[in-house]
Simulated scan of single mutants.
Amino acid sequence: MQSTDQRLLELPFADEPPPQLHQAVTALVRAKAIVDRLAQGGLEDRALAAKFGQLGGEDGTSFFKETFPFCGRWDPLGASDLRNVPLDLTMGHSWRWHPEHVAQEKRAALLERFLSCTDGTERAVVCWIVPLGLFLAHEGKNRIEFLRSEGATHYPALTTPYDYPAPDRLALIQVPGPHGDEWWAVLDQDSIEPLRYPEWSLPILTAYGVSTTKGWPEDYPPYATVRQEVDERSRRNFRPLGEAPVSLKDLQAKEVKAAEEVSTSLMDLPGVRLKRGWKRAMATLVATVMVAILVVQPPLHEISILSAGLGGALTIVVFLFGEILAVPRASKPKSWQV
């Protein structure tokens, strides 16, 4: 919807999302502005902001990358251009100054300056998540709240478009947990990420048209396996843009491989070992037989007895160390797996 504000420059207007998504994005922008103020407030306000993952407040791009799944490599969708950007869909970040910091007699001049600035160091720059209709102020993020407080509906900004996965490529999984529901996002029925702050992202993703499944799907790898992989990455300080998301297909392949039967010996099994006394006894038996045959050269009937003893010893060795057992691959020590 284009503004009728006569103060606006003759620039193209950025496209806006459908009504339901527009409403959800507007609510997100308002809530983010409120929490930003809390993050700059007193001890109790900052504690409340921390509950929403806003320890010291975050700019729009950092907030988006941390809150929404599958942001990708953050490559522009196309060239940047100057547009009139809707303020109700723009996420700012008043980290340096707030509207009340501007004296009343200076407000009109500052408003005019911001609404006419199209170049130079004061030019605003925004990242436009086109499919979601969300604008993230990058340069000029402090002015957003001031412009809203002065009744402006749009403002000029150098706008860079970015893509986001289509809703039919995404799926939301709701899993009951010990401390409330846990939410996961799946891309192309393969990549999976937890929603770190579902209270922020769920209303947008739902309005965007992403479907929700309640309960862990039976055709997925076990929930504990996925959780373990995600936790392992978290311990390695995993960041969404620093490593590929967890792949359900890769985990399923690992599960299948772990269930394969492989050959092993009794001595390869975890926790199985031969006592030292038996090792000595077997070595002594073999050595005695060999010495008796090669050095003493006993009569033929005694050689038969010694050979039987040697054969028995070899049978025991084969039983203990030969790979005559079949076990699941996961049960075999990793040092022996190929």
Rank of each mutant, 00 (worst) to 15 (best):
W97L: 09
G311D: 14
Y223V: 13
Q23I: 04
I144W: 06
A31K: 14
L9C: 03
F52A: 15
L314E: 13
L202H: 06
L115T: 00
L285F: 01
L38Q: 03
V272L: 07
P161G: 04
V296L: 09
L285S: 08
L320P: 12
F146D: 10
R169C: 01
T213Y: 04
Q252A: 15
P69M: 09
A24G: 08
L325R: 09
E260P: 08
D59W: 08
D181A: 12
G120P: 02
R329S: 15
E105M: 05
A281C: 01
K214S: 14
R276N: 04
L115P: 00
L205R: 06
R196H: 14
P194F: 14
Y220S: 10
V318P: 00
K51E: 13
M1P: 12
Y155V: 03
L43H: 06
V25D: 06
L89I: 01
L205N: 07
A281T: 12
V130K: 13
S211Y: 00
Y208Q: 05
F135N: 10
L306Y: 08
P19I: 04
G120M: 03
Y164L: 04
E44M: 07
A109E: 14
G133F: 02
V256Y: 10
K334R: 15
F238Y: 15
K254V: 07
M91W: 03
P69D: 06
G180P: 08
G92T: 12
A207Q: 05
E139H: 13
E100F: 02
A171P: 03
Q228T: 15
L82V: 09
L21F: 12
A124V: 01
D268Q: 15
N142K: 07
Q6I: 06
F68L: 14
Q54A: 06
A31H: 13
N142P: 04
I144K: 09
E199K: 11
S307M: 10
L248H: 13
H93R: 12
K141E: 00
A283W: 05
D181P: 03
C127W: 02
E150T: 05
P131R: 04
P176R: 04
